[in-house]
């Protein structure tokens, strides 16, 4: 991603998210795009029976967008989403059009939460949220393998438990 930039750039975080995340993202995209397209189609068939060309064009664009969202975006996201936890810091990268890299020193971490939605559970995935004393500083690692997430939470809790400051 950052090939066009100068020398002292950030390297990629070492670890990828679970491969099953592609399936998870595809499924959620299928559900949302399905609902969206269904509503659009009903409007197209029932409310606009004249079949104006621009209405057809909008519907076609929506279908195209949905296909991209379902087939391309999950793979793209998988390529971009990365994370890494070292002894001193946590480092993540996320997004696909707008890319975001986040770094927080573990000495400033306040809470470590993990959560698992219903669909995530189907795929054996879990997300971890690490918060600091700044509301702008929360870091989320999405779609880790379930067991790995549990391990990371345990590690993080252990490491951050060592520091006793108020982390501000």
């Amino acid at each position: 991603m950052s090939s066009a930039t100068g020398d002292p750039a950030l390297r990629d975080p070492a670890r990828k998210v679970s491969r099953r995340a592609i399936g998870y993202w595809t499924t959620t995209a299928l559900i949302w795009e399905g609902i969206f397209l269904a509503i659009l189609t009903v409007v197209y068939l029932v409310v606009l029976p004249e079949r104006w060309w621009w209405a057809t064009a909008i519907l076609a664009l929506a279908v195209l967008g949905a296909l991209v969202e379902i087939l391309v975006v999950p793979r793209f996201k998988f390529a971009v989403h990365r994370w890494e936890v070292t002894d001193t810091a946590i480092y993540t990268r996320s997004g696909w059009l707008n890319v975001e890299q986040r770094i927080a020193p573990l000495s400033r971490v306040q809470t470590v939460d993990s959560e698992q939605g219903a669909i995530q559970r189907m795929f054996g995935l879990a997300s971890i949220t690490v918060t600091t004393a700044s509301s702008a500083g929360a870091i989320e690692i999405k779609c880790l393998d379930h067991d790995e997430a549990r391990r990371v939470v345990a590690d993080l809790t252990e490491i951050t438990g060592r520091d006793k400051g108020d982390a501000t």
Partner: peptide
């Protein structure tokens, strides 16, 4: 207490 580097699509094109 932490860093966020944010790049929108257009920002990436301009580095």
């Amino acid at each position: 207490i932490g860093w966020v580097v944010r790049q929108s699509f257009f920002q990436r094109r301009r580095g």
